[in-house]
Simulated scan of single mutants.
Amino acid sequence: MRAVLTGLCILSALIVPGTSLSCQECTDLQHNNCTSAPKQCQSSQTHCVSILRQTVLSAGGSNMMSIIKSCGTKKDCDMTTSTNAGNFQMITISRCCNTDNCNTPQINIPAKEIKSNGLYCMSCYSGSSHTCDKKENTTCVGGEDRCIQYDVTVTAGGPETKIAVHGCATKNLCDTQGRAAYYGSSFEMKSFQCSSGTRPQLGLFLSALTGLLFMKLFS
């Protein structure tokens, strides 16, 4: 019996409990960096995530940065998304690391691509409601090959804010159902739809215009 107990004690000493990752976890909706005391992650969360988002409202000349740092998984890592809804433009970048408290450095937003890719989407934006009316065709740029429609509620940084966006976006924003840009508990996605971008039907338009001119000439 004593030999059995001795063996169990030795085995217990050899078993070292696993330790989970610790990361910065904070949100600042008005600046490009934030800091916090390290937080212990869940065992399924293998990476420290930093997501920086830049939103530009050309109508009011507003250019705002926001940062989210959290525990996460590899699927949240290393994505750059772009959204274009006419007056509203957004670009996000996520960066990850997998050592304790490693998501402390400041990250920077890359320059947004401005070259048209030949696609377009109907667009509109509302910063105060979950609905907006499609008002214009917006030309998609760079890797924006999807048309998106989504409604999101922002629950951090002051009073609750409702937002609606229709416009062009990159595929990875669709693949994550908006999570790549609106990450964490500060955002509640109400609805999210995605479809392929549209190419202008120039040939059909010219044919219709030619037919109309012939009708006018011979009527």
Score class of each variant (00 low, 15 high):
residue 183 Y to Q: 00
residue 23 C to S: 03
residue 103 N to V: 07
residue 71 C to N: 03
residue 183 Y to V: 00
residue 122 M to G: 08
residue 66 S to C: 02
residue 204 L to D: 13
residue 168 C to G: 03
residue 41 C to R: 00
residue 213 L to G: 04
residue 17 P to V: 12
residue 128 S to N: 13
residue 16 V to D: 10
residue 211 G to R: 01
residue 68 I to N: 03
residue 3 A to Q: 08
residue 206 L to S: 10
residue 196 S to I: 11
residue 37 A to H: 10
residue 204 L to T: 06
residue 90 M to N: 13
residue 48 C to N: 02
residue 47 H to V: 14
residue 156 A to S: 15
residue 207 S to K: 12
residue 214 F to T: 03
residue 128 S to I: 04
residue 99 T to Q: 10
residue 219 S to Q: 09
residue 21 L to N: 04
residue 199 R to H: 05
residue 167 G to A: 09
residue 159 P to H: 06
residue 189 M to G: 00
residue 209 L to G: 06
residue 136 E to A: 05
residue 218 F to C: 08
residue 121 C to Q: 01
residue 215 M to C: 10
residue 53 R to Y: 02
residue 113 E to D: 14
residue 122 M to Y: 11
residue 32 N to Q: 14
residue 127 G to M: 11
residue 32 N to T: 08
residue 78 D to M: 09
residue 10 I to G: 02
residue 5 L to Q: 08
residue 101 N to D: 09
residue 205 F to Q: 05
residue 61 G to E: 09
residue 106 Q to G: 14
residue 201 Q to L: 15
residue 47 H to P: 06
residue 159 P to A: 13
residue 189 M to P: 01
residue 127 G to Y: 07
residue 124 C to E: 02
residue 212 L to V: 12
residue 162 K to F: 10
residue 98 N to H: 09
residue 144 E to A: 01
residue 175 D to S: 05
residue 171 K to N: 10
residue 172 N to H: 08
residue 63 N to H: 11
residue 141 V to L: 13
residue 172 N to L: 05
residue 84 N to V: 05
residue 2 R to E: 06
residue 59 A to I: 15
residue 158 G to V: 05
